[in-house]
Design a protein around this nucleic acid. Sequence first.
RNA 1: GGGCAGAUGGCGGAAUGGCAGACGCGCUAGGCUUAGGACCUAGUUCCCGAUGAGGGAAUGCGGGUUCGAAUCCCGCUCUGCCCA
Length: 829
Amino acid sequence: MSKGHSEYDFFEIEKRWQKVWADKRAFEVREDPAKPKFYLLEMYPYPSGRIHMGHVRNYSIGDVIGRFKTMRGFNVLHPIGWDALGMPAENAAIKHSIHPQTWTLDNIAHMKAQLQRMGIAYDWSREVNTCLPEYYKWNQWIFLRLFERGLAYRKKSWVNWCPQCRTVLANEQAAGGECWRCATPVEQKKMDHWFLKITDYAEELLTGHAQLRKWPEHVLLMQKNWIGKSRGAYVDFAVPELGRPIRVFTTRIDTIFGATFLVLSPEHPLSRDLIAGDKEAKLQEWVTKTVAESRLRRDLGDAEKEGIDTGRTAINPFTGERIPIWIANYVLMEYGTGAIMAVPAHDERDFEFAQKYGLVIREVIEPEPPAADTGGDGGLFVDHGLVKNSGPWSGLRSEEAMERMAALAKDQGFGEASTTFRLRDWGISRQRYWGAPIPIIYCAKCGIQGVPDEDLPVRIPYNAEFTGEAGSPLEKVAEFVNATCPKCGGKARRETDTMDTFVDSSWYFFRYASPKEAMLPFARAAADYWMPVDLYIGGVEHAILHLIYARFFTKVLRDLGLTALDEPFPHYLAQGMVTKDGSAMSKSRGNVVDPDEIINTYGADALRLFILFAAPPEKEFAWNEDGIEGAYRFICRVRQTFEEIREMSQESAAGEDAAFDTDSAARLRKKMHQTIKKVGEDIEKRFHLNTAISSIMEFTNMLRREKDVLKGSAEGRALLREAAADLILLLSPFTPHICEEMWKALGRDGLVFHAPWPAYDPGLAREEKATVVVEINGKIRDKFETDLGIPEDEMKAIALGLPRIQELIGARPVRKVVCIQNKIVNIVL
RNA sequence: GGGCAGAUGGCGGAAUGGCAGACGCGCUAGGCUUAGGACCUAGUUCCCGAUGAGGGAAUGCGGGUUCGAAUCCCGCUCUGCCCA
């Protein structure tokens, strides 16, 4: 690790070119209708203190693509900003008595300098910072528009509560069921919260997938499962003693003849009525206990299933049968109606519950076609099949039975077909200081009032106390809480909850189009030019939440008339995580590798090259810096080779020229065109930057091999100069500093950043010869070389004529010969 | 617990149905050198064989489809991510 600057002075070179780029404002762009635009975006960082390797990877990938697109003639918008609100700043305030704003702004200053040392081609004039009032003002403005339309509303909701600190805890602060500060067991408490009605857009978030053909399939699948659309039916089970029915939601109405009991969630409004009577006290005690239990555990489904028999019964409308009504912890109020019909023979959870409490299990579906062994766990069969033991419905296939049974329920007035979603409304209230205040005022007389637009932003008050106890710091700032009702002018109370920081990140990409816009969140014309984001790159860990919220916001902004777009990110590249010791690098795990150390030792170019070469972008990369030396040495070799070629081109008059070696020249020229083709395709089509680099390395290796022969002739030297120039161009998106340096040394005008990407000749890039492999029964036995594209008959004749092949076949008859042009002949005996 | 991925030499990876291990790291031998962690040359999946010719095995495990499977299908194991 004690490498000096002996090989090349990357420190001086990188600093110098970074200054040139900044002085020339090389990366700043403007709307230009004459050029095709390309909006390239990487997920903006949270300013946690220092850049980590995940950032280095994310931004290096983006920079290669941005520089490449620029060289291809695109008007490339490549901005960056800061996701600057959030809990860590407040935690730092509590632990180290530093103001969240100071902590955040210091971190940003440091990280900005780090990013600049990386040489990423960002348009810094568009930097966005979400903790500044000029940004979060627009969060508030958008919130008010949602509020006016009924898309932002208040509802009671469960929160994690620490009775010791008397404060609300985020899930991660309540991990393991204990308060992160004092280890007190976490309780559940119901509080008023603000919600955004994302469920109104559930269907569109699903159908919008049709516009996302350039997203990874698995990400769309995760979102689809998250939205969780299920077709099913509501069915009312009459409870004569109660005077009204219990409505259940089921996705398997075809199994209703196997419904042997009903189960209600403990929170279900009818639970209380059902347990009224002699056993009330005992039952109520159980219900209260279950409700208070960590909802997290119940949500996960790994809590032991528990329930109680209410002693009541309900009538199955299809069979007329009376079945018992239970209350159990495995049914959640948030899904469906909070009540289910239990079909233990065909549902895993119902089955487990029925076994525990000795309830009836009745089979009503059989596999189709009836198979010998599908029983599994003693009769549990959860797939669709053929209905049986179901009166007139027996013999129908599940799909048909579902349709017809739902139709009957509707005709008879005890149910209907319906669709539900797993997706729930987005709770955005946070009882915290370092977030965008929710712009609402509570007036005893006039009720809930939105803050008038002209009073925005509602600023985060600077002076507050950070103790981590007794609620949000904002509640204790009197001048913040005490407000005037915008309607009646009377005394009123200001909302002290702040917004989830996912709100900030749900629209920041619009702001980059016009970061200084003062009248609206963003200027329509600028957004119309730049949006949508042509390529969005970021961690796959954000594949669900952030991306679904951003899609939701875009649709909301469209419906507000601010944009015409349906989808913000038509193309998403899901980047794999950078891990160390089996998990993501993070401060709390103490497994962070600081990029600064690597840059100090090897330079930014080497770090960029190394991290891009180590693995393809979408793959997880377990940090291992063994290859960094190799990346550094490669840069040195390129430089050395370049210098030799540059010097020889100036000393051409030194004696008689040797003959021009046409074989050597042809090899080099072919490799050159093949490399240009491959690098361009690897960057543009599949983002496989690691293989792009490896082909540049191969080209460099050949250039080094051939140069000693070629340098003897004037023609050879001309070819070498051409090859060296192409090498610099191809490498420049990866290692921009050293390439600018060489470009200048080559005597070229302007920046290599502004030079056009080299073109290749498809004819020269094509191979003329093919090596055909000859297999016998799938095992390689010989190979031969031919011209490209000879007919299969001819391939077959050559293969069968090879002495070695004849010998191996011997007297055995050839049953079949499979020929694939230019590739293979497989002889089957 | 559910959802989604991944597993290839000593290591990172390449190959997307057709020569497994490109490219790089590391290692070994030799050269250069006062010396070297720099540079150059050669070698480097495993087993059998003699250091040869040659042969065999092998892409987490078990099965299947195919003339042919790292690649497609089914079942497992382990690891990661998200729900948290």
